[in-house]
Design a protein around this nucleic acid. Structure first.
Ligand SMILES: [Zn+2]
Ligand SMILES: [Zn+2]
Length: 727
DNA sequence: TCAAAAAGCGGT
DNA sequence: CCGCTTTTTGAA
């Protein structure tokens, strides 16, 4: 009689399915193998997640595995365990989780053909050839990179930001030849090492000394304190033990420069996984890491599921970053899963940030994480001078106060650059008729349309609605339409008027949507000419602008008064990050924050004492109110074509759950603050428990009832464990 | 998620 | 009662 296996089938059902494993497959079943299976009337690819199972389904109803798709299991048993745990923890269908853990090409039955990457190295006679034309900067710089690395694959070269055309030019010019054997990885961590200060040294030795055992570190380092150097040194130590490294980076931070910094330190050993790669390229990186061919993975959220031969160190950079949390479907936190993986592999994990999340600070306070602090800025840089500008009853020029404009003027005169931060793109967030008070609202959302002047459009930032900018009021035909409030586009125009002689460069989603446009804007800024940068949070993340000595923050007040208790934490982090753009070793920076509430205690703490005390104050508040991270929470969201429909569904779930008591609370159904979004009405149930098992048990009941409820036509719902937003 | 089966529905 | 669309159901 053939054996039974449980298969994770890619469908939205919260359970695995049992299949017969016939002798005719010609091999034994193994955990983690991909298999082709009949399911309903279709044929799907699943993953074996349990062997020798006993099930009570009559054997005549069981179907058999059709085909084994792997030679070796695609997912090691350790990862299968992790997937099952995470499906459970986040209350998401197990089959869907396993589909997401695999690279896209492995989700189909296609035979995984492994064609070896082509590596290129300098040709034997490259030195005798004439140099490439001196204006061919890209070619010259690529030559230098390859010379240093020894050999690189097409993929790696592309990752470093060189186009195929540049590589081809070098090949055609005879500078390069194909390398037949992949380079013996050289562990050469000494080439461009920077000197470490005492704090960095301490951090590196703490991490190095715990290699080979599970240990959790929170590396709290202010901007410019040299966190990356700590990572690189720790990585070198880990490689020296013959082990591999998983490094997670927020999507926005995984730039060619970052890759280049790792690649130049560890030539030939780095692979990247990010959204800019094609499915095939991602698969190649995945394979190189899982086979042990490469040792260091630099990746974004989903890279946390990559299999390793011998994982020896996990690093999560900018651990507070929201992009680590998947915001739809399987709402996992890559940061939390990374910690779990480190535990599974018995290796240290380092969470790094200049503005650690309250979760992590709380963990550190509870001695679950060991705190490593980098207080000194590397070099002799002084802390920037941060000042609050009280703009109550001030005359603002398109949102800019006179003090800020004067400071900008002085900064530009001195030959430096100015950064103006406003987390709101477009020209103005509100278009109103002066005659009758009409306001341009979105027809599909409970939101105002944002005016985009350059495109002469009204756009909704919550759905894809857009329409032509009207010339007259559609209600009273008055032509006096007024733009209320500034956006980045308006600031750009206004600053161009004030400073016609300098470049004003705007960086937001509207100016950087084209591929590569971000890079060219950033390069333009880096050449150091006096200029003004205007932008949204895109400016705050990832890129550093060494010549900026004045940062102006236009409107941060919104974050202080949000319905979401996490808003101040996020605003504070953003503010500190933006402020961190100002100044460097030899040029002290200034940060001016325009505000209507200069007496706000949290804002004052942040400005006068810094992020740590600010965060401690927020944490104390959370403690007082028993909010996360002190307690644990989950949100069940529903949206439907009518509010009633969503609310009724949630109410039905609530009626099955335990009533609130002193260890557990349930609130809702509450309509979302912006109830209607993209034509759908949204509501939520908010669950909170003192202990995780309570929350988990209630969620299991909730999911069960949710699945059972004959769901009304258009209703959609989801469960979010450890949410980062209430709605 | 997907596709077959069942249930509605207007038109004769 | 046909032919069409919409809704429900079940999957090992
Ligand atoms: Zn009007
Ligand atoms: Zn809208």
């Amino acid at each position: 009689m053939s054996k039974l296996v449980t298969v994770a089938v890619p469908c939205p059902l919260r359970r695995g399915f049992d299949y017969l494993w016939p002798e005719s497959l010609g091999r034994d079943a193994e955990i983690g193998l991909r298999v082709s299976i009949p399911f309903g009337r279709q044929q799907l690819v699943g993953v074996v997640i349990a062997l020798d199972v006993i099930c009570d389904i009559p054997s005549n109803k069981l179907k058999a595995v059709l085909k084994v798709l792997d030679e070796q299991p695609s997912l090691a048993a350790e990862l299968v365990q992790l997937g099952r745990w995470a499906a459970d923890y986040y209350h998401h269908p197990v089959g869907d989780c396993f589909a997401q853990m695999l690279p896209v090409v492995l989700r189909k039955a296609s035979p995984p053909k492994e064609k070896p990457a082509q590596y290129w190295q300098l040709s034997a006679n490259w030195e005798e050839l004439p140099q490439p034309a001196s204006r061919a900067h890209q070619q010259i710089s690529l030559l230098a990179v390859i010379r240093q690395a020894g050999q690189l694959s097409r993929r790696q070269i592309k990752d470093l930001g060189y186009s195929n055309a540049v590589l081809n030019a070098l090949i055609n010019g005879g500078y390069l030849q194909q390398a037949d054997t992949p380079a013996a990885p050289s562990i050469d961590a000494n080439n461009t090492e920077l000197a470490l200060n005492a704090e960095q040294q301490h951090a590196v030795s703490a991490v190095s000394n715990s290699l080979g055992q599970f240990a959790r570190y929170l590396l709290d380092g202010v901007t410019g304190s040299g966190k990356t150097e700590v990572y690189l040194r720790s990585i070198a130590e880990c490689l020296a033990r013959g082990e591999q490294v998983l490094t997670l980076i927020p999507e926005i931070g995984l730039t060619p420069q970052t890759l280049e910094r790792f690649e130049s330190r560890f030539p030939g050993q780095v692979r990247a996984l990010h959204s800019g790669l094609s499915d095939g390229e991602r698969y190649r990186s995945w394979q190189d890491i899982s086979s042990g061919r490469a040792r260091i993975l630099l990746g974004t959220r989903s890279a946390v599921f990559t299999p390793f031969q011998k994982l020896g160190l996990v690093i999560v950079d900018e651990e507070h970053d929201a992009s680590y949390k998947q915001q739809e479907g399987w709402r996992y936190s890559a940061r939390d899963i990374a910690v779990k993986r480190a535990a599974d592999h018995n290796c240290p994990v380092v969470l790094g940030s200049a503005t650690p999340s309250l979760d992590s600070l709380h963990n550190a306070a509870q001695d679950r994480y060991q705190l490593l602090e980098l207080r000194e800025r590397a070099g002799i840089a002084s802390k920037p001078d941060i000042r609050l500008l009280d703009i109550r009853q001030q005359n603002l020029d398109e949102g800019l106060s006179k003090t800020l404009l004067d400071a900008a003027h002085d900064t530009l005169q001195a030959g430096n650059q100015v950064l103006i931060f406003l987390n709101r793109r477009g020209f103005s967030p509100l278009l109103q008729c002066h005659g009758c008070g009409w306001v341009a609202n979105c027809h599909a959302c409970d939101a105002k349309m944002t005016a985009h002047f350059g495109r002469r459009e009204l756009r909704c930032h919550h759905c894809d609605a857009r329409e032509a900018l009207p010339n007259i009021c559609p209600q009273c035909h008055n032509s006096q339409l007024i733009f209320q409030g500034p956006g980045t586009e308006r600031l750009e125009l206004s600053l161009k008027r004030h400073f016609p002689e300098v470049d004003v460069i705007r960086i937001d989603r509207d100016t950087t949507s084209a591929k590569g446009s971000m890079q060219s804007l950033v390069d333009g800024i880096r050449d150091g000419r006096p200029s003004i940068l205007v932008g949204t949070q895109m400016l705050a993340k990832g890129h550093h602008f060494p010549d900026v000595t004045l940062v102006g923050i236009i409107d941060i007040d919104g974050g202080l008064f949000s319905a979401d208790f996490r808003a101040p934490e996020r605003s504070g982090q953003l503010l500190v990050q933006v402020a961190g753009r100002a100044g460097r070793a030899d040029k002290p920076g200034r940060v001016y924050i325009q505000t209507h509430c200069p007496d706000h205690p949290a804002l004052l703490a942040l400005v006068s004492e810094g992020y740590q005390p600010f965060a401690q104050q927020l944490l104390a508040e959370r403690q007082l109110l028993s909010l996360p991270p002190v307690s644990f929470s989950a949100v069940i969201r529903a949206d439907a074509s009518s509010l009633r429909c969503a609310e009724d569904f949630l109410a039905a779930i609530r009626s099955e759950l335990a009533p609130s008591d002193n260890t557990w609370s349930i609130v809702g159904p509450l309509p979302a603050p912006m109830t209607r979004k993209a034509g759908r009405f949204r509501a939520a149930l908010i669950l909170q428990a003192e202990r995780r098992p309570t929350l988990h048990r209630q969620l299991a009941i909730a999911c069960h009832t949710g699945d059972q409820l004959s769901k009304h036509k258009s209703l959609r719902w989801s469960v979010d464990v450890d949410p980062i937003d209430l709605f």
